[in-house]
């Protein structure tokens, strides 16, 4: 029995090695094709977007539809996770996260709270500068979520209120994205085609909502994992 295990593992390892070889060979060959990529096209189109950071332009304008669907993925993960991690398997469109701090002790608490303010500042800066410099809604949201996780670790029960009250933040990004998309479609005739005169405002609204949803959902997902394992051994 034991031996059979080993030979099977050997075969699988060999297979993985062959796979790696094939992948690397394909990668080297593909790299040698030296395709130009899309950067020239992006640079040429950037002027029409009122955004200076090309990555933000791709995320919110050229390929904004990807980001819209991505908000759907986040929403889905949150819906299911928060339903399953509830006290009983009850309705959970509002997650009631019963947060217990896995680390107890005043030092952690202090540290978590000390971290909070600068992290939030960083997030605000990232959101604000994201249109012109590296950073943007996703990063700002992720940083806020990280801050929220630190706070949850430090403060215990109080944050459950925040998680429950803020549940409407979860679908906010998808909702704003859809509304904005339809609204600009009425003005310009094309879905997600931001009109010149309001491009910056529309995108800012989408960015703020995206950051808020990403922050809320990622923090809530952490609460869900804590909660699902809450009665752990």
């Amino acid at each position: 029995m034991k031996r059979r295990h080993h030979s099977l593992e050997g075969w699988l390892a060999l297979l993985a090695g062959l796979l790696a070889l094939g992948l690397v060979a394909a990668g080297v060959l593909a790299y040698q094709a030296d395709s130009p990529g899309l950067q020239d096209l992006v640079v040429r189109s950037l002027a029409q977007t009122r955004v200076d950071n090309p990555v933000t332009a791709v995320l919110l304008d050229f390929r904004g539809y990807d980001t819209l669907l991505e908000m759907g993925v986040l929403l889905l993960a949150w819906l299911t996770a928060s339903t399953l991690s509830g006290p009983s398997h009850e309705r959970l469109v509002r997650p009631s996260a019963r947060l217990e701090s896995p680390v107890d002790g005043s030092v952690d608490r202090m540290l978590a709270r000390l971290l909070l303010a600068p992290l939030l500042l960083v997030a605000a800066y990232l959101l604000w500068r994201g249109t012109d410099a590296p950073g943007g809604a996703l990063q700002a949201g992720a940083v806020v979520a990280a801050a929220a996780v630190a706070w949850q670790l430090g403060s215990g029960a109080e944050s459950s209120v925040t998680v429950r009250r803020g549940y409407w933040l979860a679908p906010a990004a998808l909702g704003v994205f859809l509304l904005a998309g339809v609204a600009v479609a009425v003005v310009t005739g094309t879905f997600l085609n931001h009109p010149q005169f309001a491009a910056r405002e529309v995108m800012m609204a989408i960015e703020v909502a995206t950051a808020a949803s990403v922050a809320y959902i990622l923090a809530a997902l952490f609460a869900c994992v804590l909660n699902a394992g809450g009665n752990g051994k």
Partner: peptide, 26 residues
């Protein structure tokens, strides 16, 4: 852009998630 996101998500959040899950399975 990705470095920022990875630091917050890949290392920070995923790490916290994993540790919380480990605690859950004992």
């Amino acid at each position: 852009d990705i470095a920022l996101a990875e630091a917050a998500i890949g290392a920070g959040l995923t790490g916290a998630l994993l540790l919380a899950a480990l605690r859950g399975i004992g």
